[in-house]
Structure formats: C-alpha cells, structure tokens
Design a protein around this nucleic acid. Structure first.
Lengths: 233, 233
DNA sequence: CAGTGGTCTAGACCACAAG
DNA sequence: TTGTGGTCTAGACCACTGG
C-alpha cells in the first residue's frame, strides 16, 4: 500500500473518524489491532494507541484487551456541561455582574438537607441566600447550605461583599459532585424575585459537592424565566 | 528525599490531586516542570506528562509551553451529560420500554427549523412525532425533523416499528451537535400526553446534530413532569 | 533566544479476558 | 494459554511563547 506516512496522533484520529463516519468501518466492526495499524500508518504503536484512546473516550470505539477494538454500535455520546462561575457566565455575555446577599444564618438544616449532606442530627450549617444579577436584573437565585466542618473559614467571611459561589471555588476544592437538573413552577416568592408570573417554568440546578466523603456545600440555583443552558457535543 | 518510586500515571495523578487539594500547591502556584517531577517520582517524563495532562483536562491545572504549569485559580469544572438512547435510559431503571409513533410526514419545515438546520427554502424534511413510554406511562415526547439529504434511507424506514432515535444513532453518525436545555409550561396538548396539569413545568432538551456542516436532525425532547436529569462531576 | 510542554519512537513488560 | 490493549522507559525532536 502506497499510503503516505501518517505519524501524528491527530491525523490518525481524523482518519479513524473518517472511516467510522463513512462506514468503511461499520458499527460492530472489529478494526485491526494497534500493531497492524501502526504498520499501515508507518508510525509507532504508542501513537496509534493515543489516537484510538481519544476516539474511544469520545464513545465511538469500544476497546477490550484480547477482544480488540470495535466500532461502537450505539455510541454513547456525552456533552460537556460546564459549571461556570456565575460572574464569569454573566460577564461573558457583556453584562454587568452584581450580587445581592439576601440572608445568611448559621442554623440547623432541615432533614432532607442533613440527610443528603450527611450531617449529624444536631449539627449547624451556614445557610446563604443570594441573588446574582446581570445588568441589575435578577439572573439566578442561589440557596445554599455550607458545611462549616469542611470550610470553617466561611464563618468569618463577609458574605455581603464576598460571593460564596466564587469563594468556595477558590478555597474549597472538591473531589466530586452530584448534579440534578429539573423544572419547577415559580411560586410567589420566585415570581417576585424574577418579576415574572406565578407558575412560570424555571430551570433549577441542584448541586452538592464533596471532599472525599465529607460534604462541602449543597446549592440550589434557580434561573430566571427563559434561561437556556447551552452546550455542544 | 526518600520518596518511594511512583511510576504509574494514576498514582502521580492522585498525588498531584492531593497536593492541590491540601493546598500544598495553592491556586496560582507554579508547579515544578515535568523533568523535575519525573526526577522526584523516579519515573519517565512521559509518565508525568500523562498524569498532568489528565489533571489539566479535568480543569485543575493550566498548562502553557514555556510558562509552565499552574494550579488553576478558578477551576472550570465540567460535568459529563450523557445522551443516552431513550430505551436504554428507561431499561436501566428496570422499566419496560415502549414507543408510540404519533405522526410522520414529509413536509416543508417552518422557517425557524429551516434556518437552524440550514435547509433550502423549498426543501422538504421528514417530521416525526413520537412518545416514549416507561411501563406504559409517557416518559418523553419527541418532536423531530430529519434532513433526508443526510439520511435518505430514513424515507423508506417503517417508523411505526422502528424508533427514529435509535435508528439514527446507529445509521447516521454525527460529527457535532448543539444542545439547549430549558423549561416550559405544559400546554393543553402536552398536559394531555403526560396526564398532568396545564402550566406544569417541564424540562425540554433541544438538540441538533450535524455531519460536518450538513444538518442531520433537529429534535425537541419534552420530559414528563418531575423528570430530573442527573449527572456527576 | 531558550525553557517548557507536546509529541513521537522503538522496545519492553504487564494485565486482562476470550477460548 | 495467548492475543490484545495498557502502560512505562529513555531518548529525541518539535512547537509555542515568555522574556
């Protein structure tokens, strides 16, 4: 075969994607092993490995030792949902960010919060309620519980002039988090905050972050009516 | 230093994460270069590279040639939002999947669809409306436009017995897609489908997929009331 | 210009899993 | 048992970019 030598993993990745897309390698097809592809492309096996690993990470190939590499029959694609700092998200739209603290209080969280955050029955947590504004208009409402055992410094922080969202990102790295996205009807309070109608549909993001097995914070973000989360695959 | 030798990239990754989390390497800190870390860990530079690349991909390190590697000050975390085949999502919850075709018709799409899918003014597209059921209960409503130029075979497919969602995944690989998530109030039709109240808040996912620059399909998925998308970071 | 990460190579050994 | 991907090494050169 007079194929010109392909020796960058990105070129190999492109070639592999082309073969999959053009169905030269159809779904379920067992593709040649790394050594053979390396010979075909005239490069080292490690380079082929790098390329195939990238394509497999994207969900288009299934790789198994001994069994070889197959084109995924039902590629499970994943979209990257970025979790931006709210100020950044707003400023990226060329709007002016501001932040309003509604309330902050150290108290005993309700049962469902204690349960989800794995807090002891009599333990106190810091409750923070705030509204993030874009060009002075309410953008997202934040309702947060913070575990002071994970971030004791939060108790001495001036939350009126500091933003819990950003402060936590910089000072409380987390190892994992769970996220839920749902839709709710605006109640009277939310309708008032967002200057919209009761029963308007709003997007809600619930997120809890953990340091190993200790909860850091549990937050509910309720976005203004008409908000649209966007991403690409 | 009497450090034991660390020579797997996963161990190095763990060690790096530990140093970031314990703030031994604080946000903004310029960490040693790959060669130095390789010496410290007693491994090859390529191994350090593999580990640092993984951590950087996770958003916790910023790497630049010549400038070196710094701990991210505002780590941009990304959650993986999987785009499952609806049948799989339902079966994973141990529910029985079924699928009901409401309508399918070749017709001229409305302007906003033509515009988004980049279709010519007089071109026809296949419109498919269906409901996916879990244990006989409506789970998600699907409203889809398919570009027959991208997937001509769809025109001869028996959509009553085949599921456009799955068929497209297997037969029309896409190179990119854009996704929007929003909340809407149920209108009379959706309330009827989901046997819920008008004005109930529903989650809507709009997705358009592309083969290079040619649109394949544009779909609106409207989930039943109370549906919750979940993911982890 | 020079330091850093990005990548490639040729070879080696290992870990897993199919048969 | 054995074929396949997974990983590591030591070295090399390249590409980008800060100073």
């Amino acid at each position: 075969m007079n194929r010109r030598s392909i020796n960058s993993w990105r070129e190999i990745e492109t070639e592999v994607l082309n073969r999959i897309q053009s169905r030269v390698w159809a779904p379920g097809f067992l593709i040649p092993n790394e050594a053979e592809l390396a010979k075909e492309f005239g490069c080292a096996r490690a380079t082929v490995n790098r390329a195939l690993r990238a394509v497999a990470d994207a969900g288009l190939l299934d790789r198994k030792r001994k069994a070889g590499t197959r084109v995924a029959t039902h590629p499970v694609r994943t979209a990257k949902l970025t979790i931006p700092i709210i100020r950044h998200e707003i400023e990226q739209q060329n709007q002016t960010y501001s932040h309003m603290l509604v309330a902050s209080e150290l108290s005993t969280p309700p049962l469902h919060v204690r349960a989800h955050m794995k807090l002891a029955e009599n333990s106190a947590a810091l409750s923070v309620e705030a509204v993030h504004m874009a060009d002075q208009r309410p953008y997202v409402h934040e309702n947060r519980w913070i575990n002071p055992e994970s971030v004791p410094d939060i108790l001495t922080l001036d939350l009126a002039n500091n933003n819990a969202n950003e402060w936590l990102v910089a000072h409380a790295p987390f190892t994992r988090g769970d996220i839920g996205i749902s839709a709710i009807q605006a109640d009277a309070k939310l309708a008032d905050i967002f200057d919209t109608q009761v029963n308007d549909a709003l997007i809600v993001v619930d997120r809890t972050t953990w340091n190993i097995d200790q909860s850091i914070t549990m937050v509910r973000l309720t976005y203004h009516a008409g908000y649209r989360m966007r991403t690409v695959v």
